[in-house]
Simulated scan of single mutants.
Amino acid sequence: MSLKTRGIVFATFFGSCLIVGLTVAALTTDNWIQSGAKRTNSTESQGRIHFGLFSGQKHLNVAYGWRRHDIDVLAVLRDEPDVMSYWLWLGTAIGTGLGALGGAVGAIASVLKSSSASKKTGTMLVLFVSNFLSGISQTLSFICWLFQFVQYLKHNVLLAEDRNNNWYSTELAALGTSFYFVVAGIVVVVVNITLLVIAVTLEKREREQVLETPTDEKTQGAIMLY
């Protein structure tokens, strides 16, 4: 493998590290959903809600000042299944986690492949598989949370106690930055796979050139002998 080809493979290391960073950020930040809130019986009341896969916050103001309340997403899934679907949440969490794992494996494989001049295809296969795994997993996460938003969160992000107190969030919710971390991760996977395809193409050409070289030397030697 030439230095140029190894350089292209090594470039996927930075992409894989970025994938890990984006997916870990998506898992740990509390902005998968952001929403406003209002009360039906008050024009002065305001609310802001945001949460991630595990925790979040709601800030409600009933015209007497803002009050902050923490949100335990797992408790919401357990106690109020009408707010969110557990299975869509699980698909989102697993997809994001596997996306991070695929990125980590891809980062290690890219270092091993780019640091070796060996033409063995095993490490390259691992690179492709890990990136495909990461891409498919993040796509699963993307689809699950998009369905979660359309089917549930777009219509309501509030608990029953808030709704009973005349709060509503219908059509006030939007997808948050944590969700778009996954979208960015998918884009990086596509870039990584494109670079790997280019590297494989270059490596194939290098092999063909090596196979052709001995034939040319033999031909020249025969001409000189003649």
Rank of each mutant, 00 (worst) to 15 (best):
F10K: 15
G15P: 10
S16K: 07
L18N: 09
L22S: 08
I33S: 09
G36N: 15
A37V: 05
K38A: 14
R39Y: 03
N41Q: 07
S42P: 05
Q46A: 13
F51Y: 15
G52N: 09
S55I: 01
K58Y: 06
G65F: 06
W66I: 04
H69D: 11
D70R: 12
D72V: 06
L74H: 12
A75P: 01
R78V: 02
D79H: 08
S85R: 09
I94K: 00
L98G: 02
L101D: 00
G103I: 01
A107T: 00
I108W: 00
L112C: 09
K113Q: 08
S116N: 06
T123V: 14
M124L: 13
M124G: 13
M124A: 11
L133C: 09
S137R: 12
S137A: 15
W145H: 11
W145Q: 05
W145N: 03
F147I: 15
Q151D: 10
Y152G: 08
N156M: 05
E161I: 13
N164C: 04
W167L: 02
Y168A: 05
S169I: 05
S169R: 08
T170A: 08
L172W: 01
L175E: 06
V197C: 12
K204Q: 12
E206P: 10
E206N: 12
R207V: 01
L211S: 13
G221I: 07
A222Q: 13
M224T: 07
L225N: 08
L225E: 11
